[in-house]
Amino acid sequence: MIDSSTIFLVAGDTLEPVEAELRDGIEEQQLVDWQTQWQPALTEILRELARHGVPMADWPQSWHWDWRQKRAGVAGLLAFPGFSIMADDVTQGLAQVDLTRSARSAEHQGKPLAYVDYLEVAPWNRSDRGNVPRFKGVGTALLTAIAALSVDEGFKGRLGLHSLPQADDFYRRTGLIDLGPDAAYQGLRYFEMTEDRARAFLEEE
């Protein structure tokens, strides 16, 4: 049985609160949304970049998509514990967690943590390339859910992830420890949230 909580995002333009749903699971509907709504939206972004003559080398994050691979990867999400954010009846963000990994930071080295295998917001919620996102707060809400899961698991909020370059600053700002680029992950930077930091992050008002 999937649990769901009412949360709030804000509209990207007016910053007005928008009610949303945090679900602790990824189900068929989310995968259908990904296929029928996220994927076309991403393709449209790529088309636009090409139309404006932006050289491929300047595309965000070397988006040389291989949809077959990505589709297979996303289809695999059904098999793992995950979270999804719904608003306006559409999937706004997805995350998947691996609870079998250990911490690398000196402070917690070797202790189990919640590793963020995958976290992505819907293409229309991205604010890179000067876009105004439809909703803000989707990524933060997913991260909140994962930190809380870590507490529930007895991991005291310890959390690890490989950041996307455009998110590096956010993770630093949020107080995660930057353990540098990881060659095993295409050079993505590895970050960890310590127990103290998680406590502050989840602190109630």
Binding site: L15, K136, G137, G139, T140, D169
Partner: peptide, 20 residues
């Protein structure tokens, strides 16, 4: 918290990046 996100596009993991 949503407002504090600012202009960040949050993501993590190879699958979120690009399956290239």
């Amino acid at each position: 918290r949503a407002i504090a996100e600012g202009n960040a596009t949050i993501g993590a993991g190879l699958l979120a990046r690009d399956p290239a």
